[in-house]
């Protein structure tokens, strides 16, 4: 059983040309014949970060210079996480046509979702880069640590996606359930606020695996350095 699933995973990895093409075609078709094309992704993310940043920064009485980079990187990462988990629900459902006609590994369709979201992330990263330059965020020493952070995040999202895809194909309530869970997680994960702003109930951050996963990528990007590996490793046990 374990050997079979491992070989299926490896077969999926080996057909990278297939899932990169599938993911790329998705992006191409989604923005076909629009004049901005995929840069709509960058534009809408930029506008959202700007608008939400102004409103919530004012509400929370925050210094825009540090608040906008926080909310910008938070939103970009959350777009990746929620995008992958929401869309992986339909990884098998929407590809039924292909699945019924081909014996390629089912992982292909999971990797298709991951790849598609990575392309979207690449467009959104522009927003973070612009914010870093505009607000002159210091701290380049640990910047590259976001790469291993992102890898850990993606590995975790990979197994979550596979489970979401299987459950969704069997129980059609799962996509709705996951969508509403992600909605709640968006508010209770420190994306729009600093963890220290939560004076009471710090446990909400501690038990939420997504706060450490987000932090793992975001801390280097914001010029901070914090080792949170301890908080993430237990996830692999699942």
């Amino acid at each position: 059983m374990l050997k079979e699933s491992l070989s299926s995973f490896l077969r999926g990895c080996r057909t990278w040309r297939l899932w990169t093409l599938l993911g790329w075609l998705d992006i191409q078709q989604r923005y076909a014949r629009s004049s901005l094309g995929p840069f709509w992704i960058t534009l809408s993310m930029g506008v959202m970060v700007g608008a939400m940043g102004l409103v919530y920064g004012t509400l929370f009485g925050q210094d825009m210079k540090s608040y906008l980079p926080l909310i910008g990187s938070g939103f970009v990462l959350w777009a990746l996480i929620s995008g992958i988990l929401n869309e992986s629900c339909f990884a098998f459902i929407n590809n039924a046509n292909f699945i019924r006609q081909s014996d390629v590994s089912l992982w292909v369709y999971i990797f298709q979702v991951l790849w598609r979201q990575m392309i979207i992330l690449a467009h959104n990263v522009v927003v973070i880069v612009v914010l870093r330059i505009v607000f002159n965020v210091k701290g380049y020493d640990h910047l590259l640590l976001f790469i291993p952070g992102l890898l850990v995040l993606l590995l975790n999202l990979t197994w979550m996606s596979y489970m979401a895809a299987i459950w969704s194909a069997r129980y059609r309530d799962v996509p709705q359930l996951i969508a509403s869970c992600l909605q709640i997680l968006f508010y209770i994960t420190p994306l729009m606020w600093w963890p220290h702003m939560l004076k009471k109930h710090q446990w909400i951050i501690t038990i939420n695996p997504f706060s450490s996963l987000v932090d793992l990528v975001r801390a280097p990007v914001l010029g901070a350095y914090r080792s949170q590996l301890a908080g993430v490793l237990p996830l692999f046990l699942l």
């Binding site: 297939l18 093409l21 599938l22 292909f98 006609q101 390629v104």
Partner: peptide
């Protein structure tokens, strides 16, 4: 594009 896609499949 479909030639490529199905070829890879």
């Amino acid at each position: 594009q479909n030639i490529r896609l199905r070829g890879l499949f």
